[in-house]
Write a protein that binds this DNA or RNA. Structure first.
Length: 318
DNA sequence: GCGTCCAGGTCTACC
DNA sequence: GGTAGACCTGGACGC
């Protein structure tokens, strides 16, 4: 889809804000799309903002302590003034520009594990999608598969069912929207992208969102953390782990891989059976970090190489 | 070359 | 309410 209408504005994030660490994360997590492009302080990506497909170009103009970002949104049609305002507000929130890291850093400086990440990741903010479906679908594609295969499933799913945003000389595929996936045939999806049993779950999830409606991330944020999680658990294919990935309040999403990482950090050794150890390790993370559990998880998994060196241990990389 | 196991979970039938 | 077993697929491993 060609996106020719352009809305430009400047964002002044809450410092410290490291553009590169936040927008192009060390562990390789995408900001909005697996197909986004990052080159020397500029990100081209695509996403659904306020139910509108948007090509997004972000250019860093400042420093960590005095951050400035020039943002351009590429849309199909000219937005109304109110819509443009809403798009801007949503993007600012989604790239973590309105997030204040000071309270988290005050806690992290006193923590034996987190304080080791602060030099490496100083100014890295949390980011999120504005709608639930991308992260929810992603979490289903992470289930019961090695990362390489999950990546292949995601790439195929996005290209086959997502929209291509054509803007600024780029063509970037955005995560599929639920209304389109809800109309897909699970058998066809399973065969085309080798999703196996996950295809049925993703289509059921898309139908649940499209046909019955579902809160946006902003709406989930207005609920309590437990209420938001309970709402997420209503979606087909979303269990405890996936809900903790999607929940905008954050959680402590321990799976077989992260059980090895946090088992080693908390108890000095990887568990013999990761699946059986998940509950114990999750409980320890929540006990230790409480409301900061998600930020702690985020900072640790983005810094595994450095942590391995500093602690002289072999943390499993993602 | 072939069989088995298992990977960044969730759901369901059964007790 | 608690839990064993099933679920797609493909790479790793042992033989």
């Amino acid at each position: 889809m060609k996106l020719a209408s352009v809305v430009s504005f400047e964002i002044v994030p809450t410092p410290p804000y490291d553009f590169e660490l936040t927008i192009h994360k060390p562990a390789g997590w995408s900001l909005f799309s697996n197909y986004e492009v990052y080159q020397r302080g500029t990100m081209w990506t695509a996403t659904s903002l306020v139910d509108t497909l948007a090509g997004v170009k972000l250019v860093s103009r400042g420093t960590v302590e005095r951050p400035r970002i020039t943002a351009k949104l590429f849309l199909k049609e000219n937005p109304t003034r109110d819509k443009a305002k809403e798009l801007r507000k949503t993007l600012v929130h989604d790239i973590g520009a309105d997030e204040d890291l000071n309270d988290f850093y005050a806690m992290a400086k006193e923590d034996d594990i987190l304080r080791l990440t602060l030099d490496d990741l100083y100014g890295m903010h949390n980011t999120m999608q504005s709608t639930v479906f991308p992260d929810a679908a992603l979490s289903v594609l992470l289930q019961m598969a090695p990362m390489k295969r999950s990546g292949e499933m995601m790439d195929c799913f996005i290209k086959r069912y997502g929209d291509a945003a054509e803007f600024d000389g780029r063509k970037i595929w955005a995560w599929p929207r639920p209304e389109r996936v809800a109309r897909a045939r699970p058998e066809e999806m399973a065969k085309a992208c080798k999703l196996g049993y996950r295809a049925k779950r993703i289509v059921q999830m898309a139908k649940a969102i499209d046909e019955h409606g579902f809160p946006t991330m902003r709406e989930l944020e207005t609920m309590s953390a437990d209420e938001a999680k309970a709402k997420l658990l209503e979606l087909p294919g979303i269990g405890d782990y996936s809900a903790d990935i999607v929940n905008p309040h954050g959680g402590f999403p321990i799976d077989v891989w992260s059980a090895d990482v946090f088992g080693l950090l908390f108890f000095g050794r990887e568990p013999e059976n990761g699946r059986e150890a998940v509950e114990k390790i999750k409980a320890e993370g929540l006990r230790r970090w409480g409301k900061w559990s998600w930020m702690a998880f985020y900072y640790v998994v983005q810094d595994l190489k450095n942590l391995s060196r500093k602690l002289n241990v072999k943390l499993r990389l993602s």
